[in-house]
Design a protein around this nucleic acid. Structure first.
Lengths: 254, 254
DNA sequence: GCCATATTTTGATCTCGATCAATGCCTAGT
DNA sequence: ACTAGGCATTGATCGAGATCAAAATATGGC
């Protein structure tokens, strides 16, 4: 109440695609504004999920893709013995559930790392709409292709890098992603624990902690708990310069 | 000459999609036969590529997806210093180039490991056709989703597994893929070198060699150069039983 | 504001697999 | 058939990072 639009709520959390600052990273990219309106109509905007809340679990029936609007989510699997393996971290504008199209079931957990607003895109509707809007079909394929590229980069990182290079690469990737979303590239808060970072990078949490300390001692970072400030980006990049695959952009993610 | 069909050559290498034994793993899956014919018309079937030949290189303009019909291909990147990092191995029915849709450029090399027949699918045509054949659009999205899942599994493997588990997992994956393609699941030839396997699994070639020897000593495998025979599949599976993510199929690849 | 619990930091030790090194074994070219 | 060069096996050593252990610091519930 008190607002004229049905998709913009008073607290500003529900924003229409046509007004969304993330549109250029997301499905609306490249669409005519009338087509954005058609897309708009199939998107569901539920209430924000709270920190710790599970969005979906392995085995859940796949109905929708999800796009983070604000906040952060981690995806992870769990071994029978109960320990988590972090698959990825997802920031505003990034899409979740692309791996589930395959067999109609989700393959991992998705859990909010902080209060998170999410756009839900029912997949059946999206497929129908894509068939009649070529640029939407193309953008959906591009986003999936980006996911494939990003994962290939991750595989390469895990195969060929030291602990130092992995953490440097992770921080640079985060920095880039924040920058493109209009946040500071050099001063940000980590939504995830050292444990999570370690699990994601294939390192023990102790190793992650030690590396943060080392980077700080070297004057590359200033770290205070979850708050990271990159003091010397050149030196941070230098930590992985040598062995990056040629012809590959630093960050294939949007 | 000497044949009535324009797509079936005398030596049997050029097979129409409608007759192809790999159709159920590939784009035609789920299509009406009239739609398979339409797909058929956009597919190019070039002469087979010889062992060692490069299909595409990083930076090459992306025009087509490629599907292996017979043979095997490896994809890899190269560091400035010149050493290879294997990204993947591709068997009949598997698709190459999905990572290139994103930015219109290929991101890795593709090289034939043996004489290989390939179907070329011009991407612009495929997109157009997908828009008018819903089941084709769906299958293309499924294949991309499969790629995302397979890569996520690979990441999980590299993050959480010992050398032994990695090689066991690799062999089981190969075995499954051969089985689905109508080949023996227990008796096959490796098209790639120990070096390539090591690079793909993030291991030194010496480690791969030692593991083959160990598996043979334990009576799990019989290995003679490139020829592998799996003698005890249960024990091979047992090597990775414990720590596989729950709710995840062994092999997300087709 | 205080306590219980979770998270992070720091230290000491150990292990798996990399690396270095040498030998043996196929395969292709003349 | 013979030889050269690539590929594979086997052995010896070493080190990055895991693991074990304990203290320090933050966070959330009451």
């Amino acid at each position: 109440m008190g607002t004229h639009s049905k998709v913009v709520s008073i607290d500003g959390i529900k924003v229409a695609c046509s007004n969304c600052s993330l549109a250029s990273l997301c499905l609306p990219f490249g669409l005519e504004s009338e087509d954005v309106d058609r897309l708009e109509r199939i998107v569901k905007r539920n209430r924000p999920v709270q920190r710790g809340q599970i969005l979906f679990s392995p085995g859940d029936h796949f109905r929708s893709l999800y796009v983070i609007k604000t906040g952060a989510v981690k995806t992870f699997t769990q071994t029978p013995s109960g320990d988590e393996h972090v698959v990825g971290f997802h920031l505003p504008g990034e899409m979740l559930g692309l791996d589930a199209i395959q067999d109609d079931r989700h393959g991992c957990f998705a859990k909010a790392l902080e209060t998170t607003a999410i756009c839900e895109v029912p997949f059946d509707n999206l497929e129908q709409l894509s068939a009649s809007i070529p640029s939407l079909q193309h953008q959906l394929l591009r986003l999936m292709s980006k996911e494939v590229s990003a994962e290939a980069n991750m595989i390469s990182l895990l195969n060929n890098s030291t602990a130092e290079e992995r953490l440097a690469s992770f921080l640079i990737s985060l920095s880039e992603r924040f920058r493109r979303r209009g946040f500071s590239a050099t001063d940000f808060f980590l939504a995830m624990s050292r444990q999570d970072i370690g699990s994601y990078l294939g390192l023990a949490l102790e190793t992650v902690s030690r590396l943060f300390t080392r980077f700080q001692d070297q004057g590359i970072l200033q770290v205070e708990r979850k708050h990271v400030r990159i003091l010397d980006m050149d030196r941070l990049r230098g930590l992985l310069r040598h062995q990056t695959p040629c012809h590959t952009q630093a960050d294939k993610r949007s």
